[in-house]
Design a protein around this nucleic acid. Structure first.
Length: 287
DNA sequence: TATACGTGGCC
DNA sequence: TGGCCAAGTAT
């Protein structure tokens, strides 16, 4: 145990949110579903969808048995709907290659659609108790501040950063898992990107960033996410029409939600290419 | 490695 | 008020 473990673990024990996927009765599938949904998406918005999802599809096999379009519809307005397709494809792969059970090995998880390095680690650790570093944006920000004395972590993860995160893990598997979720929670609730609550931080006294006077980020400029008028907005509008319709949608109803024809055509084509929509004559529908 | 990919809440 | 941000992945 290093000097950070005890205060962070104690803080987590006292302040952690009770979330369904952290329940002792949560299944690996519940954890995996939560991780896909939480990618770039706030907890508050995931909560109701996760509950409905698990009620309808309590196992990978139950989801794999349905058309992918049902997953897209249930995904609702969570955003990045390709994740719904990937989760459905992952469920299918789990049935085909893992006997319907969410695998525990990082490499097996990484091979599943929609599962990258972070999610593979999160499922291995939080669903199966494996000992593995979990590096998400929260953990990276906490490490950057406490250990490096900078406001934000670099854009990409280096080998050194990963090795340090692994070195920081408590020796015991269960403690290591709790440590990872605790650091994530600390980043989500206290060591936030904006307006960090250093007064509530269990390791404020050990924080290099605080000791340095909270120097502002001075790295390369980080690109914002363009939205208005972008293909992303257009795709979102088009897919929302089909998702919220009872059946196949005639083309004019799609034309009505986006004025620029060229962009509309391009986005419709990309939605078809992604498999988020299928065309049936003059109508469009979920797959 | 840089970019595309949804949505909505916050200050 | 609009830019920033939220448990990333795929290409």
């Amino acid at each position: 145990m290093n000097d950070l473990h005890a205060p962070v673990l104690r803080w987590y024990d006292e302040h952690a949110r009770e979330l369904p996927w952290r329940s002792p009765s949560a299944t690996p599938w519940s954890v995996m579903v939560s991780e896909l949904m939480l990618q770039q998406t706030p907890v508050a918005r995931v909560l109701p969808v996760h509950e409905q999802w698990l009620e309808r599809w309590p196992t990978p096999a139950s989801l794999a048995a349905e058309p992918a379009g049902e997953a897209v519809r249930m995904w609702g307005r969570l955003g990045y709907p390709r994740r719904a397709l990937r989760l459905h494809a992952a469920a299918t792969a789990i049935v085909e290659h893992h006997g319907g059970e969410v695998p525990a090995d990082h490499a097996d998880l990484l091979a599943l659609p929609g599962v990258g390095d972070y999610t593979a680690a999160a499922v291995a650790v939080f669903a199966h108790g494996r000992r593995h570093a979990v590096l998400d944006t929260n953990v990276r920000r906490v490490h950057a501040r406490v250990l490096d004395g900078v406001e934000l972590a670099p854009q990409s993860v280096t080998r050194a950063e990963r090795e340090r995160a692994t070195d920081l893990l408590p020796r015991d598997d269960a403690d290591a898992a709790t440590w990872s979720v605790a650091v994530m929670e600390l980043g989500a609730l206290v060591c936030t990107a904006q307006r960090p609550r250093c007064g509530a931080c269990p390791v404020a006294d050990a924080c290099a960033w605080r000791a340095a006077g909270h120097p502002a980020y001075d790295g390369p400029p980080r690109r914002g996410q363009a939205w208005a008028g972008t293909d992303r907005q257009c795709r979102g509008r088009l897919l929302a029409v089909v998702r919220e319709a009872d059946g196949p949608v005639p083309r004019p109803r799609l034309d009505a939600v986006w004025p620029e024809q060229a962009q509309r055509e391009r986005c419709l084509a990309s939605l078809l290419a992604d498999g988020l929509l299928v065309r049936d004559g003059e109508d469009y529908a979920l797959p």
